[in-house]
Design a protein around this nucleic acid. Structure first.
Length: 288
DNA sequence: AAATTGTGCAACCGCGAAGAA
DNA sequence: GTTCTTCGCGGTTGCACAATT
């Protein structure tokens, strides 16, 4: 049994918005704010469904929107964020002031995808295309690769359980800060051992009080005979790089995790993504 | 100049989840 | 606990315009 429609479509306008409709919507929201989208059209005297009004406002009429071409920096940021988040356009848009999820999604599909493909990078996995073929042929352990990439947890290959976890975590956000479990989910590292591709690692993520970090790090050092790990951490809002990955949360506990070795591996795809020398602030990924 | 094909983007659709009843 | 409403998201469609034949 499907949902009831959001509005009586036979009495509603569809398609492109007229200038008059835009003006009505803008003036209504300016004087009344973004309230209930369901009742807004009638109150504003528009023959549109609330959904349509919301979309029009968010994607086109909002005064803080930045129109015009994407800059090179924005391009790079989108690629980086997509490599980490997958098709989570709203999260990506949250990192690009003045850009909407719809705009970024369109830009991705029409420009960036092509750009990556022309560079031999699979836009879905952010791996070199020949590496993807290696995966497809299930000969991963026999082939060699020279690329390393971050693969998003949010790609279509994720299981339904993972999808639900991710969505639940998304809803567990607190103001400005994210819960520990959520932050962890943004990592899905693919480890590369020298020139041989290893199976995707489900690296264990451990949460511990701060005073346990040192032991934890020592343990990890012993465990990672094949994989060197690069770590990121933030403390009091300052980004640092360290052998210990740590982030402060509201209750002052910390979280440790290991990531991929990005300092000792050279790769075309990786350099292109610009991750080699940069530290990402994952806390600020959650700005909404 | 006309027809065809390609491209970009605004808008729509269906779904999942939260929250209210 | 169940049902219904609303919101927000991601995927897809359709149209206008540009480029090519």
């Amino acid at each position: 049994m499907g949902r009831s429609p959001c509005c009586e479509k036979e009495h509603m306008n569809k398609g492109a918005w007229t200038k008059e409709e835009d003006e009505r919507l803008v003036s209504y929201i300016k004087s009344h704010g973004e309230g209930c989208w369901r009742s807004l059209p009638r109150a504003a005297g528009l023959l549109r469904c609330g959904k349509s009004c919301r979309l029009r406002w968010i994607n086109y009429l909002r005064p803080d929107l930045k129109r015009g071409n994407f800059t090179h920096d924005e391009d790079e940021l989108i690629i980086k964020l997509h490599s980490l988040l997958g098709n989570k356009w709203s999260l990506i848009a949250a990192r690009l002031p003045g850009r909407t999820d719809n705009e970024i999604k369109n830009y991705w599909n029409t420009h960036i995808k092509r750009k990556l493909l022309s560079k031999g990078i699979d836009p879905t996995t952010h791996r070199a295309i020949n590496e993807v073929k290696v995966h497809d042929s299930k000969k991963t352990e026999e082939k060699t690769v020279k690329d390393v990439a971050f693969v998003s947890r949010f790609q279509k290959t994720e299981t339904s359980v993972e999808q639900k976890q991710v969505k639940n975590q998304k809803r567990n956000r607190t103001n400005g800060l994210v819960c520990k479990e959520e932050r962890v989910e943004y990592y899905y590292p693919v480890a590369v051992k020298e020139e041989k591709l290893c199976p995707d690692l489900n690296l264990e993520l451990k949460i511990s009080p701060p005073w346990q970090n040192q032991n934890h790090v020592d343990d990890q050092r012993r465990e990672r005979s094949f994989y060197t790990a690069s770590r990121f951490y933030m403390e009091n809002g300052v980004e640092c790089s360290s052998d210990t990955a740590k982030c402060q949360t509201e209750d002052s506990s910390s979280i440790s995790y290991s990531s991929v070795d990005i300092s000792s591996t050279s790769s075309v795809a990786y350099d292109f993504l610009g991750l080699k020398t940069r530290v990402l602030d994952f806390r600020s990924l959650e700005m909404k």
